[in-house]
């Protein structure tokens, strides 16, 4: 059976989601997306600056991709809802990454406001994927509010500190019935592989690509790591044991 991820009625083959922020050269985004084979791609909405020659990011995103607009900049539920509605009106689909942040140092999300935004947007028919502080109870509340997936952070946004929330995410994977996607802080492919090995449904990466010396090569590396981690999870990673267990037969020694 093919291993597909289902979110909001869509079948997603690639479990590697990619963010498009902070690439010094926007034209590299297309190459990154090709190398990553990503299908789910995040973008942000901002005021247009007519004086800037800023290119339209959508020109660099392949047609096959599902756009997931984030609500970055939202400090409460009302602002997140406003941004989501604007994104939908722009005609880029109804997948929304809810991101409500009112902590400027660590950029940690406000789960409580996020839950309020989910209730409103899910009711309006959006496919809602909340970025969240890993927590089982809040994740359950988010699912009850209509979240199509939950996206716990691995470590603070853009920190490249890796998968520091493994213990809680592991519990969420066990208990939460919608897809669990590790979003933020993943700095290296091995960390993305780890997320997948413990059963996360997908990984979302941005800074580790945009800040890499060669973002395209790094996208390829992450793509392989995510795939490898997923295969390992499906294969069933054997339990750890304290003592050695010989790999060769313990009989018939030449002695």
């Amino acid at each position: 059976m093919e291993d597909v991820l289902k979110i909001g009625g869509k079948e997603i083959k690639s479990r590697f989601f990619v963010g498009t922020g902070k690439f010094p050269d926007k034209a590299v985004v297309r190459d990154v997306l090709e190398a990553s084979a990503a299908e789910v791609v995040t973008v942000a909405v901002r005021r247009v600056d007519p004086d800037s020659s800023d290119e339209n990011i959508l020109d660099h995103i392949p047609e096959r991709c599902v756009l997931m607009t984030n609500t970055s900049g939202a400090r409460d539920a009302a602002e997140a809802v406003r941004i989501a509605r604007l994104a939908k009106a722009a005609g880029c689909g109804d997948w929304i990454k809810i991101e409500v942040i009112n902590d400027n140092k660590y950029l940690l999300p406000d789960n409580k406001e996020t839950i309020k935004a989910i209730e409103i947007l899910a009711e309006e028919g959006f496919t809602v994927l909340p970025y969240m502080n890993p927590d089982l109870v809040d994740a359950r509340r988010m699912v009850d509010a209509g979240a199509a997936a939950v996206m716990p952070l691995g470590s603070p946004i853009g920190s490249n500190r890796g998968f520091r929330t493994e213990e809680i995410v592991r519990i969420m994977v066990d208990e939460i019935k919608v897809p669990v996607i590790v979003d933020a802080g993943i700095g290296a492919p091995s960390e993305a592989a780890r997320c997948m090995e413990i059963g996360a449904d997908a990984v979302l990466v941005n800074t580790a690509l945009s800040a890499a010396a060669d973002p395209v090569k790094m996208a390829e590396a992450f793509s392989k790591a995510v795939e490898a981690g997923r295969s390992a999870y499906l294969a069933g990673i054997p339990e750890r044991i304290e003592e050695a267990s010989a790999s060769s037969p313990l009989t018939g020694f030449l002695r």
Partner: peptide, 10 residues
């Protein structure tokens, strides 16, 4: 009036 468009984001 707000005139809004898309930009890169994570």
């Amino acid at each position: 009036i707000e005139i809004i468009s898309f930009t890169g984001g994570g």
